[in-house]
């Protein structure tokens, strides 16, 4: 089985995000970057499938600058066989549509049965790339998957929906987006971290992939930090009066009822 895993390097969940002076990007100084946690589920699932089907290959694909090689190396240390990194500087700020076009073009140069991606990247939270690629490649897309079974050349997938689990069947090739719960990603061992260094990361450019339309269809106009939380209010006075005042505030100012 040939498996592709789409990965993205994102700021660590604990990073303190600041907006840079352009107002259209985050300030990357001092930020630690990690492999997107949802993509980690995808890598883990791909590697588990490979372990059950030893003739399988797992290729991790990413779009990102030089630093994104670290995330790629994490995926390789977890067990992906090779990596593909797509970049040129014109891609800074590219939207999901452009990225999907590039990833679809890269997939087009490879054989694949399953493409895994995270349900979303935790930096921009768009969750758009998986669906967009499925359209470009004309293959089925199943999102938010928490269980993957492969039998008889088909994927039987479990999705979490409000109040129930949905079981979906689809043929291959297909695109599966990973939701938390799909698996418990492994920590790479010391030996595998060292081995990952010897695995190939192929570098590709949009031109090399034959993608010339790099114009984003959406434009990031500006970024704003979330509003700071208003300070709490303390209602003074005797309990009976304070309760009356609290009800007045809830009713008249906050309008909860």
């Amino acid at each position: 089985m040939k498996i592709l895993v789409l990965i993205k390097q994102v700021p660590d969940t604990e990073a303190q995000i600041k907006i840079d002076p352009s107002g259209k990007a985050i300030d990357e100084s001092g930020i630690k970057f990690v492999l997107n946690p949802y993509d980690e589920f995808g890598v883990e699932e791909a590697v588990r499938i490979k372990e059950k089907n030893p003739d399988s290959t797992v290729t991790a694909v990413t779009i990102g600058p030089e630093r994104s090689k670290e995330a790629m190396r994490s995926a390789l240390a977890m067990g992906a066989d090779t990596g593909i990194k797509i970049w040129d500087d014109s891609l800074a700020g590219a939207d999901a549509g452009v990225k999907a076009a590039l990833l679809a073009a890269a997939a087009g140069t490879l054989e694949y049965d399953i493409i895994f991606c995270g349900k979303q990247a935790i930096d921009d939270d768009q969750g758009a790339v998986g669906g967009a690629i499925s359209r470009l490649l004309s293959v089925p897309f199943v999102s938010n998957v928490v269980k993957v079974d492969i039998s008889g050349g088909k994927c039987i997938l479990q999705r979490e929906v409000e109040g129930a689990s949905e079981i979906v069947e689809c043929g291959m090739p297909c695109i599966i987006s990973a939701q938390k719960g799909l698996n418990e990603p492994r920590y790479p061992s010391l030996i595998n971290i060292m081995k990952a260094k010897k695995k190939e990361i192929k570098e590709m450019t949009p031109a090399g992939l034959g993608v010339s339309d790099l114009a984003s269809k959406t434009e990031l106009v500006g970024m704003e930090p979330p509003p700071s939380r208003p300070p709490g209010r303390i209602i003074e006075g005797e309990p009976a009066q304070a309760a009356v005042e609290l009800v007045r505030i809830l009713r008249e100012e906050i309008k909860v009822f």
Binding site: R73, S74, A77, Y187, P188, L190, I193, M194, K197
Partner: peptide, 19 residues
């Protein structure tokens, strides 16, 4: 170097999350 920082990160995660 790259190896050292990756090793430190990995063991640090195990230490924090598991140990």
């Amino acid at each position: 170097n790259e190896d050292q920082s990756m090793i430190k990160d990995m063991v640090g995660r195990v230490a924090e999350e598991e140990l």
